[in-house]
Design a protein around this nucleic acid. Structure first.
Lengths: 192, 192
DNA sequence: TCCTATTCAGACAGGTCTGTCTATTTGCAG
DNA sequence: CTGCAAATAGACAGACCTGTCTGAATAGGA
């Protein structure tokens, strides 16, 4: 083990970080299969050998991309101020509006990745499965605490609404989405 | 113009039909970029020159694929028996359940294609836009006839629910979707 | 200063991609 | 039978793909 921690060892190496940042931008805006390794290393300013030193294959980079997006989302939910279940549900769903009004929205990165990874046993799909299970679980627990008689069913509906509104923000009108989030919550949550 | 109609001219040529059928199956189950022209012509049993005789480029085949899926969906809705608006809405949304329980569901072909076509000006994306506008319009008109005070908003929510449930059938549990469709309708439709 | 790990640029292999082209064969209409 | 339109197999070009490898340059810690 290390007795001293080098300055760079406290965080990820800058080469790896630049690769992941560049890949995230390109994968998200243009699609995963559409972006080659040569393009990523060129725009990241990293040599090819360095790339394959950090990521054994392109699929490992894709997996790192998906996992990081997942982690960012979970951290954002963890960082939400504590509040009572109804407000907490609204805050969790409100992240949709925030993501969408920022501009440059190109759809849910998980749904986009799933469209390009048909094999449900692939690591990318497993990561997406875990992400979806986490999101459903967060909503289900909040709904249960709120006294919803069928929290799992309502959670499934909220997950579907989330996915659908994220796609609507990509393919239809992003500006209309925040109001739709509020309207959906009003109608889907059964008041006990 | 033709004075006599040859037997094959009454329908599309069999080569073109086989190409489109094969492409539909492969594009849907494996993804568009993931399937090459060589593979399509091999499985369709068609020569390469014949392929490029029917479709100037691969993208034209993709467009034909998306357009045909669109036409099939519209025809299915047109073929629904006439009934009063609430039942008609349930019937339109019920197509989700039918599509999903059949097995082999790999997500909404339009959302999957949109994930691989980032340029909103591309013909494929334009076709997807038209499809979405049609679907929203169908629901909006039915809701208006049903006396919904905000038919466009409700229609947007139903479109989002449709998209989300189609993705849930792909990524989560298809068997759970039919019940969710019914539950969503119960909660989203505002009774005047 | 030396050592070790990292990074660099870029060639290279082997495969796949789309699209073009040649040259032959098939099949139907007149 | 003749002629034309369409389909055939397959080579080919040029680009791009992932992944490997070579050999040199760089930088920070002991």
């Amino acid at each position: 083990m290390n007795t001293t921690v080098s300055p760079t060892a406290s965080g990820a190496s800058t080469a790896r970080r630049r690769l992941l940042d560049t890949a995230t931008r390109l994968f998200y805006t243009e699609g995963i299969r559409a972006v080659g390794v040569d393009r990523i290393i060129a725009e990241a300013g990293v040599a090819k050998a360095t790339f394959y030193n950090h990521f054994p294959s392109k699929d490992d980079l894709v997996l790192a991309y998906v996992n990081e997006q997942d982690r960012i989302g979970r951290d954002a939910v963890s960082a939400l101020p504590e509040q009572r279940p109804p407000e907490m549900i609204a805050a969790v769903m409100g992240r949709i509006s925030e993501a969408v009004v920022a501009g440059g929205w190109r759809g849910c990165p998980f749904l986009n990745a799933a469209a390009e990874y048909p094999d449900p046993k692939s690591p990318v799909r497993q990561a997406i499965d875990a992400r979806r299970a986490w999101y459903h679980g967060v909503l289900r627990d909040l709904l249960q605490a709120d006294g919803d008689p069928t929290p799992s069913v309502t959670a499934s509906l909220l997950v579907a609404l989330s996915d659908g509104l994220l796609e609507a923000a990509y393919l239809d009108d992003p500006a209309a989405v925040p109001a739709l989030v509020g309207e959906a919550l009003k109608r889907l949550l059964v008041r006990p």
